[in-house]
Write a protein that binds this DNA or RNA. Structure first.
Length: 776
DNA sequence: AGAGCTGCCATTTTT
DNA sequence: TGGCAGCTCT
């Protein structure tokens, strides 16, 4: 019971209130993750089977952290808890129940790019004006429809059905139809003002195509799961009984659909209503994606006997920071009453930096970073630079590079977003699910094999008219002899892959596919710097797949020894760039305020504090928009533990032109007594440059950045054949390691290497692709 | 098939 | 300003 002693009274009360619904309103730095983990530990100690606990988060990172912390408190039993993201947990269940919904269990997961590409196709085919019907806007619209449980049918109802027709329906259906009609009328009215009245038609076709392709997009993972629960009572009951204890992190970021699922799972006749949601309305920053704080209010309404606990003590930040945050958020209209406090003393005053342009801003921030490092002995990883838009990172990157300070930019292009990586994955997706048209289109002529755009277009048309997938249509396509030869070649290639995939691990298949498809040869012939990079990425992907195959992890309540390709693909589809960052590296962090949520740093710089930037120009027109910007600022401020610096510039480049800017209104919402005055003049900076060693790398790539201390400029890769048992080697990504074994011959030579510092299992590295330098 | 040009467009984005 | 999608030209 010792861990309960480390909690304050409120936290302990929230942890031990195990019967009935619980709402924990948790301010920033109030120990909410702690409460969640301890609550799970407590539940288990009280006799709850770990496998009956469902713990939902939004990010993989949060899920992983949760699992690790549970394991620390209660040991291995904790691994049987169903802890994961909404998407990954539901995807896993959907996989085993897919056929009930008419999906293959190996369904593909369409990422945003696939969804957009499909939309482009549909819009083109339906001959809508592609300027008015831009796929980004349509996808947002469709996503929000799904998140609000609006089917294509409901969406278009007001255009498809009249009031009179509804009056003719059986009485019991009328009320619901009128309700739908209402929703539809509003949506269509909105679409009409944006001159896109026919979105519902595109939506309808899009849904049909996804189904035909045996594919779900991100929203479908939630939507189809909801459908599964509502249309299959027996299945619903099974999961209601299975998940007797439900915990939800970041509840303020849930959308209507997620809430509907939570209700289905926990609110039914005979339920113990053992659901605990944790959130902070003040940190809701994803309303633009459909998240709604109304869920918190609805939760109070829907779950009677709700007990609410407010965690108001902030253990993270010092007084000026906490108070400034409180003052700012007070300007928002609607919020749950709470007063966040700290006993860590007043601490440092908030610094402000005023500059004349963005380059000067970057320079001043970097100067100030040197000052922090020297005077307060902060490590790089204890410092973060936050901004409202990713485009602002550039100036800081340049300034940091010039100052020789190591940094890492969060966001930007993810490893799994890279073209060459997606190409490989598309082949693999097609091998697993041949109906996946988006994957097929991606690889049918890459590397080029004489199937041009025109031919692909014709096949797509034919497939569409037959209501079949493109793959099924291939053999029926009556082309010229030349086309037929090319198509048959492709079909044989894929069939060969499918055969091959019947046996062998995901890694073996991937390797085979990469070679036989000529992808590797194509990359090998590209000797430009970018080409080498692409090669390295494909190599890294193969390594990642190998790692996945080797790793006998225990997941939830079943030991997953299923290291098949389908499992791998579904796992990978839900991984994002944020998951690939190494928190150990001693680098300064650059990221958007959005990505900073949940993180903390000793010293935080919030930059670009200007009107029309923060708050954003797009958001400031509506009170709701402005409130969300303010919550965003609240999140930014509360990331800081000891030092907070707010920075703004008098001018800024916008769309190529230099514009004058006004300081953000948010600055005025903080009482001046918390400020340390303005540093308008060049700050007196000690020359710390010589003492601080940088890595001298540019924009770091998530997951691929070299570890500290590796001098890339002097990196000399050795020939594959010279890598032998027992040698000490250096890898650009994994660092120093020892060769434990070498297997295979020629291009199939694989070395097993244990890398230093990594408690991970030894990695298998394909010598043909990996660049290894021999150290002794 | 791929180079090179033009013209469009610019938030945030856990999955 | 700069990144890109989509076009034309070879």
């Amino acid at each position: 019971m010792s861990y309960l002693d480390s909690l304050n009274d409120r936290q302990r009360a929230a942890v031990t209130a195990t019967d009935g619904p619980v709402l924990v309103v948790a301010g920033p730095g109030s120990g909410k993750t702690r409460v969640l983990t301890y609550r799970i530990a407590y539940l288990i100690e009280q006799g709850a089977p770990p496998a009956e606990i469902l713990s939902l988060t939004f990010t993989n990172k949060a899920a992983r952290e949760m699992k690790e912390r549970i394991a620390k408190v209660i040991g291995d039993r904790g691994q049987r808890v169903w802890a994961g993201t909404f998407h990954s947990i539901f995807a896993r269940i959907l996989r085993s129940e897919a056929e009930k919904l008419g999906y293959p269990s190996n369904f593909s997961i369409y990422d945003t790019d696939d969804a957009k590409s499909l939309l482009r196709t549909v819009i083109k085919e339906m001959s809508f004006d592609k300027d008015a019907y831009h796929e980004n806007a349509i996808l947002t619209r469709i996503s929000s429809a799904k998140s609000n449980l609006i089917t294509p049918k409901i969406y278009g109802l007001s255009l498809e059905m009249t009031d009179a027709q509804i009056a003719g329906l059986p009485y019991e259906r009328q009320a619901r139809m009128r309700q739908y009609l209402d929703v539809s009328t509003k949506l269509i009215a909105q679409d009409t003002t944006t001159r896109r009245p026919f979105i519902y038609k595109i939506y309808s076709e899009y849904v049909k195509r996804c189904r035909q392709a045996g594919a779900m997009d991100f929203d479908d993972l939630l939507y189809q799961f909801y459908t599964l629960l509502s249309e299959h009572p027996a299945v619903c009951k099974k999961y209601q009984e299975k998940f007797k204890y439900i915990l939800v992190d970041e509840f303020q970021d849930t959308n209507q659909l997620q809430y509907a699922i939570l209700r289905k799972l926990s609110d039914y006749a005979g339920s113990l209503h053992n659901i605990c949601v944790v959130g902070d309305d003040a940190q809701s920053i994803y309303a633009f994606r459909g998240a709604t704080i109304d869920n918190i209010l609805d939760f109070e309404r829907d779950f009677k006997q709700l007990r609410t606990f407010k965690l108001e003590q902030n253990y993270r930040s010092t007084g000026h920071i906490v108070n400034a945050a409180n003052e700012v958020i007070l300007n928002n209209r609607k919020q749950i009453q709470k007063s966040i406090w700290t006993d860590r003393g007043e601490g440092q005053l908030i610094a402000a930096i005023k500059s004349n342009n963005d380059q000067e801003e970057a320079k001043r921030v970097v100067d100030s970073i040197f000052e922090h490092k020297n005077r307060h002995h902060l490590a790089n990883k204890e410092i973060a630079i936050l901004y409202r838009t990713n485009a602002q990172s550039r100036a800081f990157e340049e300034a940091l590079r010039r100052a020789n300070l190591p940094y890492r930019v969060y966001g930007g292009t993810s490893f799994y977003d890279r073209k060459e990586v997606k190409d490989v994955l598309a082949y693999l997706r097609l091998v697993v699910n041949q109906r996946d048209d988006e994957a097929l289109k991606r690889v049918i002529n890459y590397p080029t094999r004489g199937i041009g755009d025109a031919t692909i277009g014709k096949i797509a048309m034919l497939a569409n008219s037959l209501n079949k997938s493109m793959w099924e249509t291939l053999r029926e396509y009556p082309g010229t002899p030349r086309e037929r030869t090319a198509i048959t070649g492709f079909a044989l290639l894929i069939e060969n892959f499918i055969q091959r995939a019947q046996r062998g691990s995901a890694h073996e298949i991937a390797l085979y596919v990469v070679k036989q498809s000529q992808l590797l040869d194509k990359l090998k012939h590209d000797t430009t710097i970018e080409g080498l990079g692409r090669m390295e990425h494909v190599n890294a992907l193969l390594n990642a797949i190998a790692e996945f195959c080797d790793d006998d992890e225990v997941q939830d309540d079943l030991i997953i020894l299923d290291k098949t390709l389908p499992t791998y693909l579904q796992n990978i589809a839900l991984v994002t760039n944020a998951d690939l960052n190494d928190p150990q590296a001693d680098v300064i962090t650059l990221m958007s305020v959005h990505s900073a949520k949940g993180l903390e740093y000793k010293s935080v710089f919030v930059t670009g504090m200007e009107e029309d930037l923060f708050p954003s120009l797009m958001a400031k027109d509506t009170p709701q928009g402005l409130d969300e910007e303010r919550r965003l600022f609240y999140v930014a401020i509360t990331r800081a533990e000891l030092f907070l610096t707010l920075s703004f510039s008098a001018t800024r480049y916008r769309f190529g032109a230099l514009q004058h800017t006004a300081p953000s209104r948010f600055l005025n919402e903080i009482n001046p007594k918390h400020f340390d005055g303005f540093k308008e003049k060049e700050a007196a900076v000690s020359d710390g440059r010589s003492r601080v060693t940088g890595m001298g790398i540019g924009r770091a790539q998530p997951g691929l950045a070299p570890p500290l201390g590796i001098d890339l400029a002097n990196f000399k890769p050795a020939a594959p054949s010279t890598i032998l048992l027992g040698l000490r080697v250096l890898h650009q990504r994994f660092g120093e390691g020892e060769v434990l074994g070498v297997e295979g011959t020629g291009s199939g030579r694989v070395a097993t290497i244990r890398f230093k510092g990594a408690e991970n299992a030894p990695k298998k590295i394909m010598l043909n692709y990996a660049k290894l330098q021999i150290l002794n």
